Deep mutational scan, measured.
Amino acid sequence: MISLIAALAVDRVIGMENAMPWNLPADLAWFKRNTLNKPVIMGRHTWESIGRPLPGRKNIILSSQPGTDDRVTWVKSVDEAIAACGDVPEIMVIGGGRVYEQFLPKAQKLYLTHIDAEVEGDTHFPDYEPDDWESVFSEFHDADAQNSHSYCFEILERR
């Protein structure tokens, strides 16, 4: 099963200049909980913004210009990325925008964090048809001392 995991502000903004323009430790914990011990696929820009392999996960970098870091697996196509994951129950696609666009048609599940923030962004989550998805989990949280904005975790499964 292919799943996408993303944090989205208003207007589906997911990033600005290779960074997330908010401070939500709870979302980072949600991300870790849902990706640990699963292969993660990301684009080169996302890889560069993280700066290191995510521990406890097979890191697969999709790029037309593969790098030389041998701590991760470099691939040039969506099919190659899927094959590099091996026989696993769930593959997690973690961004960025172009990689989400490439995998959305193949995805069966979306793990979304909806952030109540209007922020400037240069990267967006692809538009998706809500009628194609069923919400199977939703959990709202107010902003607090650690988390700069209110947010809602949601899991959607393709109908």
Rank of each mutant, 00 (worst) to 15 (best):
V10D: 03
G67E: 14
D70M: 11
Y151G: 09
V136M: 10
Q65A: 07
P55S: 08
R159C: 13
T73W: 11
W74Q: 09
V93I: 06
S150N: 03
D132V: 11
R98G: 14
I61M: 14
R52K: 08
I50M: 13
M20A: 00
P105S: 08
I155Q: 06
L62C: 15
H149R: 06
G86Q: 11
L112W: 07
H141G: 08
F137R: 12
R159L: 13
W47Q: 15
S63R: 06
I61A: 03
H124L: 05
D131M: 03
K106S: 09
E120D: 15
Y151W: 06
V13S: 04
N34L: 06
E90Y: 04
V136E: 08
Y128F: 03
R98D: 02
L8Q: 02
L62E: 01
A81V: 14
P130Q: 13
V13E: 03
V75G: 05
E101H: 10
E129T: 10
P126V: 12
P39R: 06
R158S: 09
S63Y: 03
R98F: 15
L8K: 08
I60R: 00
I91W: 13
Q146W: 06
A107G: 05
E101F: 10
V40C: 08
K76N: 06
F137Q: 10
L4P: 00
P39E: 14
S49H: 07
G51W: 10
V72A: 13
S150A: 07
I155E: 07
D79Y: 04
V88F: 14
L112F: 12
E139I: 07
R98A: 09
Q65G: 03
L156G: 07
S64K: 09
R98N: 03
P21A: 04
V40Y: 01
V75R: 10
A26Q: 03
F140L: 14
V13R: 01
T46N: 02
Q102V: 14
D69L: 09
I82Q: 07
E154W: 15
A83R: 08
P39S: 08
S63V: 10
G97P: 00
Q146F: 11
S63M: 08
D116F: 15
Q65Y: 12
D122F: 00
L110K: 02
P126N: 13
Y151F: 07
S77W: 13
P130R: 14
R158P: 05
N147A: 13
